[in-house]
């Protein structure tokens, strides 16, 4: 195995005409001289929150707004009221901002992550939102298990408006300033979909059939 590693590196360096790899700093300096334009990114005329909502809707996601975190249980109740949940439970991601809330009995909230595979709806806390694309950012960790983003039919994400940034690059700036990259970062834009049957768009392929963002602030 390490023989193949050495051979591939040898071939790469032979192709590039050298015997030693330049340092990361030298490489970074070369990149800066090559990049001619300012970072080309989409721009928009509205404020970040409007852009976020517009892009989220364009990706078949929905949203509601509350003024404080304490209103989240009521907003969840409103959202689930008109949906067919087939008796499947609603579960909470083990995030203190959710578990410390006062959840009304009739929502039948399950707090046991071990039961997550049976949940019909999962509620999680978004780390950040990206206005450019209407995406929610979900880094993995003890308060944000990855599988909750994909197993349930309905995915509800609670997101503080102040955590919406304009571009994906700002997410990396904040995450890397806080430490290492987590095991997984899921950037989620709308519910799961496929167009593999005759190019017809169909929601709910393998992941959630719906994505609802509760904006706080």
């Amino acid at each position: 195995m390490s023989e193949q590693r050495a051979e591939i590196l040898r071939r790469v360096q032979q192709a590039l005409g050298r015997q030693k790899a330049p340092s990361v700093d030298i490489a970074a300096a070369d990149l800066e001289t090559r990049l001619t334009d300012n970072l080309p990114r989409p721009e928009w005329n509205t404020d970040s929150l409007s852009r976020f909502c517009e892009r989220l809707e364009a990706a078949a996601g929905s949203h509601a707004r509350v003024s404080s975190i304490n209103e989240v249980p009521r907003a969840v109740g409103d959202y689930l009221e008109n949906l067919e949940t087939d008796g499947h439970k609603t579960g909470l991601s083990p995030h203190p901002r959710l578990t410390e809330l006062d959840w009304p009995e009739d929502l039948g909230i399950d707090r046991e992550f071990a039961n997550a595979r049976t949940w019909g709806t999962a509620i999680a806390v978004g780390y950040m939102g990206i206005a450019e694309t209407g995406s929610v950012v979900m880094p993995s960790g003890p308060t944000r298990p990855t599988t909750l983003n994909f197993l349930p039919d309905r995915h509800i994400v609670v997101l503080a408006i102040e955590d919406i940034v304009d571009y994906m690059e700002s997410v990396w700036d904040r995450l890397l300033a806080e430490g290492e990259m987590p095991r997984t970062v899921n950037v989620i834009t709308g519910p799961s979909r496929t167009a593999d049957v005759e190019q017809t768009l169909q929601l709910g392929a393998h992941g959630p059939r719906s994505l609802h963002v509760i904006l706080v602030g």
Binding site: P182, R183, V185, V187
Partner: peptide, 11 residues
Amino acid sequence: QITAYTTFITG
């Protein structure tokens, strides 16, 4: 503009 799921796996 972006796929529904864009995932970054580190370790």
